[in-house]
Design a protein around this nucleic acid. Structure first.
Lengths: 218, 218
DNA sequence: GTCTATAACCAGATAGAC
DNA sequence: GTCTATCTGGTTATAGAC
């Protein structure tokens, strides 16, 4: 067993490269992140990076895959506890907010790449879509449970798309003003109204939470 | 008047460069767009580009400024015609949808840059924020008229942010699946519900448009 | 204002000793 | 697995003729 330490050192180097590359690529985007930047950030020479990942595309694919696995592992599984719609929706929204806040890299990686249209390897494009599809599926499955939509996939699909677009748009805003957070309150109101608009029974009318100010219809 | 033709030719070259650069940068992002790509696309040598714009940052600033001016000129001015809330909201949403559909470059430029955090010139960062602020202001002013929110700027601000985040998120989705369009129907429902949630009087309850399927509260 | 030619540099990627 | 050294090509940017 003389090779165990070597394997270990290799793994740790690999992780260091992956971490540095993820950080840099989520900040600067794929094209603006160079091998030498990654090398400087993790302390290893450029050749070590190529030994582990083969190419710049290879690093990107690995970074994205890693981010996907981490994020999906952090998102609670589809069984959203709660007895009524409002409660299950709260749990879902909290999961979305937590994922957004604690794993900011994910969406920024998907956004900050700028390498979709062309010039990208097939593997990178495939992984990008894989990542995105995993998020869509998670959201749709969760919302199906929240609103009990097993027989109305088009509604759960619309709600999932709406949720993800709000999150994506917030991620964009976040990078103009870093203090931005995902406001789940407006999202809750919007999802409830959308569900009601499609005739889905929701707890109380369209808007949950305490109303303040004048009533809607005096 | 011997210099008029020369001025004219210079202007046309400038426009050609600006057009090609805008196209390429909105597709590939700032970092992935090189001077030689722009040169090849517009047929002029690289030195002409530098003569007109001075640097790569200079081109980017000019492209962004041009996109901002064009987009804002295309958006209807704040006076949203219509007698009741629903009608004014429809007009606003149509303006948003039209702007989104007919000027896809704008948002993609803002998104596809990946050059915000660092490494960008002060002028470029300033122009990016200028662009974004112009959009936010337009949306907030319009929504103030739509919902008559002169004395409740925090509500119009929230509605404007929500609208822009939906649009931004859709722009992101658009570049995963190019067929994606801005769905104004869910946005309408969401905005009405949000306004009602804040006690703003809206025409009929929370959801406009024809209801289909079961009623919300049997 | 527009061109050709080129300087100075940095990118991604590889070879081979250890 | 990790290092030093290097190759090739593309990058931004400039010089100077026209």
């Amino acid at each position: 067993m003389t090779k165990a330490p070597a394997q270990d050192r290799g793994m740790r180097s690999r992780d260091a490269i992956l971490g540095a590359a993820g950080e840099l690529m989520s900040q600067h985007g794929y094209a603006a992140t160079s091998i030498s930047m990654i090398s400087a950030a993790c302390g290893l020479p450029a050749s070590a990076i190529y030994w582990h990942f083969g190419s710049k595309d290879g690093i990107y694919v690995a970074v994205l895959e890693h981010a996907r696995v981490v994020l999906l592992a952090a998102l609670p599984s589809v069984e959203v506890p709660g007895t009524d719609v409002t409660q299950r929706l709260d749990n879902f929204l909290q999961a979305v907010g937590d994922g957004f806040q604690r794993h900011p890299h994910g969406l920024k990686l998907l956004l900050g790449l700028g390498m979709l249209q062309q010039g990208a390897s097939a593997a990178a494009v495939a992984e990008v879509h894989h990542y995105r599809n995993a998020l869509v599926t998670w959201a749709q499955d969760s919302l199906t449970v929240v609103f009990d939509l097993r027989d109305r996939p088009e509604v759960s699909g619309e709600l999932a798309r709406f949720t993800l677009r709000t999150a994506s748009g917030t991620a964009v805003a976040c990078w103009f003003e870093p203090a931005t957070t995902l406001e789940i309150e407006p999202l809750r109101v919007a999802l409830l109204a959308l569900a009601a608009h499609h005739g889905v029974p929701v707890g109380k009318a369209s808007a949950a939470g305490p109303r303040h100010g004048r009533a809607a219809n005096p």
